[in-house]
């Protein structure tokens, strides 16, 4: 049960911090996402993010910092296994599922639906 609570708390806080950045600075959403993914890589590299994932589970892996975490973890594991070439293969291997899902489901949805004016 604690896992759910931590997941809610950490996930919520990561989103709330991004909202403060949007409202208080002129950062566009695209810049914030880039900031989050690189921050995720950095925090994983210095060893901060993994404990957070262990604590909050999906609360740390679902926000885009978690995407950076998967990239960094993928790279780390691949370097351990294969040496320097792992730096080139590990990142996208670690995130292959997500990216492929976005392309495949995105494509299927595009075939079915059309855009409409929002309110």
């Amino acid at each position: 049960m604690m896992k759910f609570l931590w997941s809610f708390l950490i996930g919520g806080l990561l989103c709330a911090a991004a909202q403060v950045l949007i409202d208080k600075t002129k950062l566009t959403p695209a810049r914030i996402l880039v900031l989050y993914v690189t921050l995720g890589v950095l925090l994983t590299a210095v060893g901060v993010y993994k404990p957070l994932v262990e604590l909050a589970g999906c609360g740390a892996t679902t926000p885009l910092t978690g995407f950076g975490y998967s990239l960094a973890e993928g790279v780390k594991n691949a370097v351990d296994e294969k040496g320097i070439i792992g730096a080139f293969t590990g990142g996208l291997t670690g995130t292959a599922g997500g990216i492929t899902a976005a392309v495949v489901f995105g494509y299927i949805i595009t075939l079915i639906f059309n855009g409409r004016p929002r309110d």
């Binding site: 919520g12 589970g57 609360g59």
Partner: peptide, 14 residues
């Protein structure tokens, strides 16, 4: 709102 919805999505993922 960001905290609430973001938290809920992460909790649902959990």
């Amino acid at each position: 709102m960001a905290f609430l919805f973001g938290g809920l999505i992460c909790m649902a993922a959990e």
